[in-house]
Amino acid sequence: MVAITEMTNWAVDLIDVRKTYGKAIQALRGVNIQVGRGEIFGLLGPNGAGKSTLVKIMMTVVRPTQALGTILGRPLGHRGKLAATGYLPENHSFPGYLTGAKLLDYYAALSKVPRSVRGPRAGELLERLGLSRWGSTRIDKYSKGMLQRLGIAQALMNEPELVVLDEPTDGLDPVGRRDVRNLLLDLKQRGNTVFLNSHLLSELEMVCDRVSILVNGLVARQGTLSELTERTVEYEITCVSDVASLAGKLLRLGATVAGPVVTLPGHDIAKVNEAVDCLRSANVAIHAITPKRVGLEDILVEAMGGQDAKPSATPPTSPPAARPAGPHGDS
């Protein structure tokens, strides 16, 4: 088993991970997740889905009831590979008596980073995360945002191949969130793998290559963002003037009309063309044609068994400038 998995190129290859608390609470019921090397992978799901439990099993904080698979090509809990992994837990609590720099030094020493490397790297990371002025300040003086930045810094002290971040933008202001996003993209550019657990779907949508949706301890959906969101659920034709006079014709195509906006449910491009022909024949100028795709939120709600999976109000993918009439909206 190990020999086969070592040959695979997955950074994380979890097979049939199960966790039962006590005798009755099944937190994970056979999770299979694969994360490619160099990917940013997002784990999402509703509260109580088992996301944090899964992350903790990966990091040996929680002992699985059953788990196969590998992390960086070695079985879960392999010490050498833990040394090559960085971890930021959710709601972390660092010892207040340490300064930022000493905390980084302490955790890096536990990761067996040589002393000669620790000092310069701590300085570099504090700088990178905007904490260079606070390196010699006690942690109990830090704000929540600063603590979060410090937590991310400690996860990177060992120059990990794999970084596991549980709610990394928790407590950060918009600028801090943007900085973390840029940091994640930078890590990806350097070839690091990032495993991200976040409830902020917009954050995940912006940086993740692939996501997995965990519901009730099982993977409900998994794939690249484009795979999951490629379904177009409706087209919106925005005209420059009110088209109420054409409502009768448009209704026959299944469209709904609201002022200058014509909405066509489904993804039948022929109907879109017919609607455009109808509008153009009445000399109505078309401002934009926007295909509405499902967002992560819709997919999540759908995966949870919700009935209200509606297209998210994603901004139009076509430029806002007036476009010539035609059926070809950007996809």
């Binding site: 904080v61 833990l82 972390h92 609590s93």
Partner: peptide, 13 residues
């Protein structure tokens, strides 16, 4: 404490 021990347990020890 939750959140305190997690990081240490994830280290190669």
């Amino acid at each position: 404490r939750h959140g305190g021990v997690d990081v240490v347990l994830s280290k190669p020890i």
